[in-house]
Design a protein around this nucleic acid. Structure first.
Lengths: 228, 228
DNA sequence: GCAAAAGTGTTTATGTTACACCCATGT
DNA sequence: ACATGGGTGTAACATAAACACTTTTGC
């Protein structure tokens, strides 16, 4: 059919902004490029979408190929398509943002050809293409979203302390929160279940909690809305 | 360079979900397709992205070509790229959503070849491609957004009554609001300026108001956040 | 015993909800 | 005069914010 020749076609890629949390600050996973252009430069993991592949599938495939990450929380962010954003020609990129738990973290620096490393969001290196712009959009989304969606739990281990959760919120929101009010509010929401387990370690043991997803789903079906 | 042949390329389109408000209910602007596939079927305005054209520019161009709309509020919504969403082959579509004021509304039915018409969001015809899915995503975005961003004003004339504004919020949110509380809250936000003008007409004249964008911008720069 | 993080309640201020009547105009 | 939408205030209630000390552990 003549259709395939009617319009010139841009190339299509996906790029992923992968956030992690180490108990202290928010981190982003970057890879060092092994190809021109921007050879040796840090960049977001990503690559070309295959012809019969769903966009999210492409993002997950690239994540696994470049960072060994599987089964992470992944959500479409925004599509970047300014002409000139890629020196090779017209390349449109669908950006995703991902949240990974500490136990899913890939090694800080692989021995593989493709080097991957975590960087604190405050201390990022120069990035290839328009990846700094994509990253800013992802940070804005995370910031706007964490207050009314339970995405914080995607960044913590399955069992976590309220102290960890608060540190995460403080890192994402960029301000400190009152400990008593934070606990009161979160526990009142009633989808964080306290466990009979405690941390061991160099201070007073802290009670562990778990995010109760079935409970959360039940609440949201009833038109429930929270805000932190 | 060999790059251009390394990867097969999907075709890239933009589609626009255009919302309008007629004082009563929320409406969506659709066009009747003049080409196969889905010839004669209602669809979202949109079309192919040119090779050296920004995505938003493409959306604005298509809007003007197909619906004569210019200078509308336009925001990127989401990108739809499931293989098989277009029977012609792999076509990825970047969806936008637009808000237009009554004075920008194109004629209800053009005499032109390309027919365009407004439909109430509750009574939509069958749509081409996956446009029903795109439309649902746009409605969800509008619903989630209207409460904390001043997008309501993009759907009303420059000078409006609080009654009109409330009717719009009720249409978007799908529930009725208390008149006194609504007025109290909106006026307290302090970016809606009352004017010394009034409607004429068949009842008690209503005071007109104007959205004070400079005032709004000043407030948001100071980290201000509202919710209706 | 001291450093370090965990845990816990009350008071005050602020914001949200519910609610009913008179007003100005056109017909 | 009546129908129609415009306009107004207060009291009860719920939510959010401010605030300091005791507990438990490892060293």
């Amino acid at each position: 059919m003549s259709f395939t020749y009617e319009y010139p076609r841009p190339s299509l890629t996906v790029d992923c902004v992968v956030f992690g949390f180490d108990g202290n600050g928010l981190q982003v996973l970057l890879i060092r490029r092994g190809l021109v252009p921007f050879l040796g430069c840090w960049a977001l993991p990503g690559g070309f979408v295959l012809m019969d592949e769903d966009l999210e599938t492409a993002a997950r495939r690239e994540l696994q190929e470049e960072t060994s990450l599987r089964e992470v929380f992944l959500e479409q962010l925004q599509t970047f398509g300014a002409p000139g954003r890629d020196p090779r020609g017209r390349v449109v990129s669908v950006a995703y943002f991902a949240l990974v738990r500490p136990d899913q973290h890939p090694a800080k620096s692989d021995t593989d050809a493709s080097e991957a490393a975590w960087f604190p969001v405050g201390k990022l290196p120069e990035l290839a293409f328009d990846h700094d712009e994509i990253l800013r959009a992802a940070q804005a989304r995370l910031h706007g979203k964490v207050r009314w969606q339970p995405i914080g739990f995607e960044l913590l281990p399955e069992k976590f302390t309220l102290g960890q959760l608060q540190a995460l919120y403080e890192a994402v929101l960029g301000r400190s929160l009152d400990k008593r009010n934070f606990r009161k509010k979160l526990l009142a929401l009633d989808f964080i279940a306290p466990l009979e387990e405690f941390t061991a370690g160099s201070h007073r043991p802290a009670r562990l909690h778990r995010f109760d997803r079935p409970r959360y789903d039940a609440l949201t079906e009833g038109g429930f809305h929270f805000e932190i």
